[in-house]
Simulated assay, not measured.
Amino acid sequence: MASREFIRTVPHLNGMVISATGYRTTGQRPALHRGLPSPYLTVIFSLDGPIATGHTPQQATGTDAIRTDIIVGGLHQSPAHVVQPEHEAGIQLAVHPLAARALLGLPAAELTGELVVDGRDVFGGRAAELRERLCGLDRWEDRFDALSVYLRRRAADDRTAGSVRPEVAEAWAWLARHRGAGTIGGLSRHVALSERRLTSLFRAETGLTPKQAARLTRFQHAKTAVVRASAAGAPQDLARIAADCGYYDHSHLVRDFRQYTGASPTRWLAEECRNIQAGAHRPDGE
């Protein structure tokens, strides 16, 4: 009999980690899952075997799949395809991109261009030791605590990769406050930089332009609204969700769904129904 468990917490890391989700599934039919773009970096410690991912379903299930048991993923603009085996377990972190320097030792922009990076190449050898310790613990609470201690120590280490420019930090905060719906002109005036200069600094730090980050943030809120309606068994009113989330119209919401999920909202919901009902898509940081 199949079982699915998702346990979520918000680590006490001064907002650097938005959420930590422990997951364990057994007895499920092997399938492909779409790892969606989001405004957060992804870090996964597998407590089972290596995770196979790819830019396409063919790569994820083929001999050239990217396989690692510690995943670090940057901000991306299209879905990652992830193999879901019969049984799997792990902890997935949603990391604020401006915390990348403190927690990962590099700006988020350095992760751009790669679907995922082996966590050992980012965290170093101690990440493997941490993973082994996580595998040996029985309770999710203890695993979350061990991971939080490890990350706090990294953040406190003096060998961090510099600091984030205040204009970029304020620009990200402004986009978050406006839920991705503000104009780039308004943003550049707010941080007292030209649009060109702001775009250059923002992309150098995060790997995205402010416009791309705004679209991704807006989509995240729209996806959350779609998931909440589905989990509650309510009918999907995409036109209302589009208006509430700052889209020009329903067709623009569908356009973003197709870009970020590779499917229409209806098709994506049908494919993710089991995960949604099990709590895998509860919103981050809300």
Results as ranks from 00 to 15, higher is better:
Arg215Met: 09
Ser230Thr: 13
Leu238Lys: 03
Val226Leu: 07
Leu104Asp: 01
Pro166Leu: 10
Thr53His: 08
His96Pro: 01
Ala234Met: 12
Gln59Phe: 11
Tyr260Gln: 02
Glu286Asn: 10
Ser264Met: 08
Val254Ser: 07
Gly180Ser: 05
Arg139Gln: 15
Ala243Phe: 09
Ser188Arg: 04
Gly124Ala: 10
Ile7Gly: 00
Thr68Trp: 06
Ala99Met: 10
Gln77Glu: 15
Glu88Phe: 08
Gly124Gln: 08
Arg8His: 07
Glu170Met: 12
Gln220Gly: 11
His33Asp: 09
Glu272Tyr: 00
Arg228Pro: 03
Arg8Phe: 00
Ala263Phe: 04
Gly15Ser: 09
Arg131Pro: 00
Asp69Val: 05
Asp284Thr: 13
Ala176Asn: 09
Arg152Pro: 03
Trp268Ser: 02
Thr183Cys: 05
Ser46Pro: 04
Leu93Ile: 08
Gly185Pro: 01
Arg159Leu: 14
Val17Gln: 03
Ala239Trp: 07
Ser194Glu: 06
Gly22Trp: 02
Ala94Val: 08
Ala204His: 12
Thr61Lys: 09
Glu286Gly: 12
Asp237His: 14
Ser3Gln: 13
Leu201Ser: 08
Val10Asn: 00
Glu141Ser: 15
Gly22Asn: 00
Arg143Tyr: 02
Ser78Val: 12
Trp174Lys: 04
Tyr40Thr: 03
Val83His: 04
Leu93Gln: 01
Ala242Asn: 06
Arg67Ile: 08
Gly22Phe: 02
Leu115Pro: 00
Ser148Val: 15
Gln212Ser: 09
His81Pro: 00
Ala231Asn: 04
Val254Leu: 06
Arg165Met: 02
Glu272Leu: 02
Pro166Asp: 11
Ala60Thr: 06
His190Met: 08
Arg152Asp: 06
Ala20Leu: 03
Ala80Phe: 05
His250Pro: 00
Ala270Gly: 11
Arg267Val: 15
His81Ser: 09
Ala52Arg: 14
Ala127Lys: 02
